[in-house]
Measured scan of single mutants.
Amino acid sequence: MPGGGPEMDDYMETLKDEEDALWENVECNRHMLSRYINPAKLTPYLRQCKVIDEQDEDEVLNAPMLPSKINRAGRLLDILHTKGQRGYVVFLESLEFYYPELYKLVTGKEPTRRFSTIVVEEGHEGLTHFLMNEVIKLQQQMKAKDLQRCELLARLRQLEDEKKQMTLTRVELLTFQERYYKMKEERDSYNDELVKVKDDNYNLAMRYAQLSEEKNMAVMRSRDLQLEIDQLKHRLNKMEEECKLERNQSLKLKNDIENRPKKEQVLELERENEMLKTKNQELQSIIQAGKRSLPDSDKAILDILEHDRKEALEDRQELVNRIYNLQEEARQAEELRDKYLEEKEDLELKCSTLGKDCEMYKHRMNTVMLQLEEVERERDQAFHSRDEAQTQYSQCLIEKDKYRKQIRELEEKNDEMRIEMVRREACIVNLESKLRRLSKDSNNLDQSLPRNLPVTIISQDFGDASPRTNGQEADDSSTSEESPEDSKYFLPYHPPQRRMNLKGIQLQRAKS
C-alpha cells in the first residue's frame, strides 16, 4: 500500500489531465453553448442521470443573480465542470439528445442517441419513463405552439383585415386629398384670375382717368384759346370803332377846312374895312368942321342928330352885343352839340362793343353748352356701355358659378359613389376574411389534438420509441430542437415537474 501511493497520485493526475482536456473543448465553445442552450431543457435529463440535484437545479433556474438565459447556462456549465468526467459525459449526452448541432460542434462527431448513462443509472424502465415524459412534454409544447400558431394566424388575419381596411381608408383619404388639391388648384386659379381682372380693371381705370385728364386739359386749352380769340375780336371791334371815330373827325375837319373863306376874300374885306374906317374919319372931320361953321339952329339939329346917332349907336351896340352873345351862345351850343355828338359816338361805340361782347359771350355760352351736351352725351354713352359690360360680366359670372356648381355637385356625387364603392369593397373584403377565418377555424378544430390522450396510444408510441432511437435521429431532433426563430415568436414553456403513473402502461404491456 505505501508503495502504491505514487502510482495512485500519477493516476489521479492523469485523470485530472484527461478531464481538463475534455472540458477544454467545452470551454472553447462556451460562448456558443451559453448563447443557445436552454438550461430548463437540460436539467431534467441531468437530474435523471443524478449529475445534479434539486438544489443545483433551483440555483440554475431560479437564482435572482442569474437574470438572463446566458448567465444560467454559464452557471450550469460551471456546476457540471465540478462534476468531473461524469458531468462531461452526461452533458454531451444531453447535447446529443437536445442540441445535435452543438454536440457536433463540441465533439466533431455525429449524434447517435445511445443514452448509456441513464440506462446504467435507471435501467430501461427509467429510460422509458424519461422518454415518455419527454414525449408528453413535446406534445404539450407542440399543442402550445399550435395554439400560439393559431392565435398568430388569427392575429395575422386580423392584421391583414386591418391592413385592407387601412388601405381602403388610405384610398378614401387619397380621394379626399386629391379632391382637396383640386379644389385648392381651382381656388388658386380663381385667385389668379381675380387678381388679373383687378389689374385689368385698375389699368382701365388709370387709362380712363388719364384720358379724362387729357380731355379736361384739352377742353381747358380750347376754352383759353376761345377766350383769347374773343379778346382779340373785342380788341378788333374796339379798334374798328376808334378808326371809324377818327375817320368821322377827319371828315369834319376836312369839311371845315373846305368851308373856310379864301385869302383873297379876307384881304378884300380888310380893304373894305380900311376904306370904311377912312371914310368914317373923313366924315367925322367934316362934321367937326361943320359944327364950327354952322348956326345955332343947325347946331341944335346936329345935337339932336348926334344924340339920335348916339342912341342909334347905343342901340346898335346893344344889338351887336346881343348878336355877339347870341353868337357866343350859338358857339357854345355848337360846342355842346359837338361834345354831345362825340359822347353819342362814344356811347354808340361802347354800345356796339357791348353788343359784340354780348354776342361773343352768347356764342361762347352756346359753345360751352354744346360742349357740355357733348360731354353729357359721352358720359351717358359711357355709363350705358359700362352698365352693359357689367350686366354681361355679371351674367357670365352667374353662368360660370352655375356651371361650377354643377361640376362641383357632379364631382361630389362621383366622390360619394367612389367612397360608397370603396366601403362596399371593404365590406366584401371583411365578409370574405370572416368566411375564410371561419373555414380555417373549423379546419383547425378538426385537426387539433385532444387534450387527454388514451393510455393505449401512449403505450403504442413508446413501443415504437426504441427503433426510432436507432434510425431516425433527424426526426427526433426536428421535433425536440428549438430554433432561434421559434424563440422569437413563441413563449418558452415550462412543464410541471411531476412523475407519471406507469401502472397503466405496465398492465397494457403485460396484456400485449
Results as ranks from 00 to 15, higher is better:
82 T>V: 10
89 V>E: 15
39 P>Q: 02
56 D>N: 11
84 G>P: 03
6 P>S: 12
143 K>C: 06
46 L>F: 12
89 V>W: 15
42 L>P: 06
102 L>M: 01
119 V>E: 15
121 E>F: 05
139 Q>K: 14
17 D>W: 08
138 L>Q: 14
108 G>T: 01
122 E>F: 05
146 D>I: 10
46 L>C: 09
42 L>I: 07
6 P>K: 13
121 E>N: 14
144 A>H: 09
120 V>L: 05
11 Y>H: 14
25 N>P: 14
34 S>T: 12
41 K>A: 03
106 V>T: 03
33 L>W: 02
116 S>V: 00
10 D>S: 11
134 E>T: 15
65 M>F: 10
31 H>T: 07
125 E>C: 11
45 Y>T: 08
85 Q>C: 12
47 R>V: 07
99 Y>T: 00
7 E>T: 12
38 N>E: 01
113 R>W: 00
127 L>W: 14
14 T>F: 04
27 E>N: 11
96 E>Q: 08
86 R>Y: 01
132 M>T: 01
67 P>W: 14
51 V>S: 07
66 L>F: 08
66 L>T: 02
96 E>S: 02
111 P>H: 04
119 V>K: 15
63 A>W: 00
28 C>I: 06
39 P>T: 05
45 Y>E: 10
91 F>K: 01
105 L>A: 01
39 P>C: 03
45 Y>G: 11
142 M>H: 11
44 P>Q: 10
13 E>T: 14
35 R>Y: 06
61 L>M: 02
9 D>I: 09
57 E>K: 08
86 R>V: 13
134 E>C: 15
88 Y>K: 03
130 F>Q: 13
29 N>K: 06
124 H>E: 13
4 G>H: 08
41 K>R: 13
30 R>Q: 03
102 L>T: 00
54 E>M: 13
28 C>D: 05
45 Y>V: 09
77 L>Y: 02
121 E>Y: 03
93 E>W: 07
146 D>G: 12
94 S>R: 02
140 Q>D: 08
125 E>S: 12
144 A>N: 13
62 N>E: 12
123 G>E: 15
32 M>A: 07
90 V>K: 15
62 N>Q: 06
53 D>Y: 07
37 I>H: 04
14 T>W: 14
69 K>L: 05
78 D>Y: 01
47 R>T: 07
144 A>Q: 09
28 C>L: 03
38 N>T: 06
37 I>R: 04
20 D>A: 09
141 Q>A: 11
40 A>Q: 09
46 L>E: 11
50 K>P: 09
133 N>Q: 12
126 G>H: 15
103 Y>R: 00
54 E>K: 10
14 T>G: 07
64 P>R: 05
34 S>D: 01
28 C>K: 01
28 C>R: 08
146 D>R: 05
93 E>M: 09
139 Q>T: 11
31 H>Y: 03
7 E>H: 15
69 K>V: 05
91 F>W: 00
44 P>S: 07
86 R>E: 15
145 K>F: 12
35 R>C: 03
52 I>A: 06
41 K>G: 06
139 Q>R: 14
35 R>W: 05
52 I>G: 09
118 I>G: 00
43 T>A: 08
39 P>W: 02
98 Y>Q: 06
51 V>M: 09
23 W>F: 01
70 I>F: 14
129 H>K: 08
135 V>I: 13
86 R>W: 10
134 E>Q: 12
91 F>S: 01
132 M>F: 15
17 D>K: 10
67 P>N: 09
83 K>V: 06
59 E>V: 05
60 V>M: 09
144 A>D: 12
93 E>D: 15
56 D>Q: 07
70 I>K: 03
91 F>T: 15
78 D>A: 04
76 L>R: 02
87 G>Q: 00
123 G>D: 15
113 R>N: 06
88 Y>L: 05
128 T>Y: 15
32 M>D: 14
37 I>A: 02
37 I>G: 01
32 M>S: 07
76 L>C: 01
6 P>N: 09
39 P>R: 01
126 G>V: 09
81 H>W: 04
20 D>S: 08
133 N>G: 12
58 D>V: 06
35 R>H: 08
18 E>C: 10
65 M>E: 03
12 M>C: 07
109 K>V: 00
55 Q>Y: 09
141 Q>G: 06
134 E>L: 11
125 E>G: 13
36 Y>H: 13
123 G>T: 15
57 E>Y: 01
71 N>F: 04
29 N>P: 02
88 Y>T: 04
105 L>V: 00
129 H>L: 04
31 H>E: 05
25 N>S: 11
4 G>T: 12
6 P>L: 12
96 E>W: 02
21 A>I: 03
141 Q>Y: 14
4 G>F: 11
115 F>Q: 15
71 N>E: 04
137 K>G: 09
144 A>S: 12
91 F>E: 03
78 D>Q: 01
146 D>C: 09
89 V>I: 11
140 Q>E: 13
62 N>H: 06
142 M>P: 05
12 M>R: 07
59 E>A: 00
87 G>A: 03
39 P>V: 04
27 E>W: 00
75 R>M: 03
38 N>R: 03
129 H>D: 11
17 D>M: 07
124 H>Q: 12
41 K>H: 15
38 N>C: 01
69 K>D: 02
69 K>N: 05
137 K>V: 05
124 H>N: 15
119 V>M: 15
61 L>N: 05
70 I>A: 11
45 Y>W: 07
71 N>C: 07
121 E>C: 13
15 L>F: 06
13 E>S: 12
44 P>G: 11
128 T>H: 15
21 A>T: 10
89 V>Y: 02
107 T>R: 00
125 E>T: 13
60 V>L: 01
138 L>F: 10
119 V>L: 02
84 G>C: 07
66 L>S: 01
61 L>D: 01
6 P>E: 11
143 K>D: 08
118 I>T: 14
84 G>A: 05
89 V>C: 09
45 Y>C: 06
142 M>E: 05
7 E>C: 10
77 L>R: 02
80 L>E: 02
63 A>I: 00
82 T>M: 12
47 R>M: 08
30 R>K: 00
26 V>K: 00
79 I>R: 02
146 D>S: 11
114 R>N: 06
115 F>V: 15
77 L>C: 01
141 Q>V: 09
12 M>H: 08
135 V>R: 08
81 H>S: 10
35 R>Q: 04
64 P>V: 13
64 P>H: 12
33 L>G: 00
46 L>T: 06
131 L>C: 02
52 I>W: 08
20 D>P: 07
120 V>A: 05
142 M>V: 08
129 H>Y: 04
19 E>H: 10
19 E>V: 14
121 E>I: 07
89 V>G: 13
97 F>Q: 01
84 G>F: 07
61 L>A: 00
49 C>Q: 15
83 K>N: 06
94 S>L: 05
124 H>S: 15
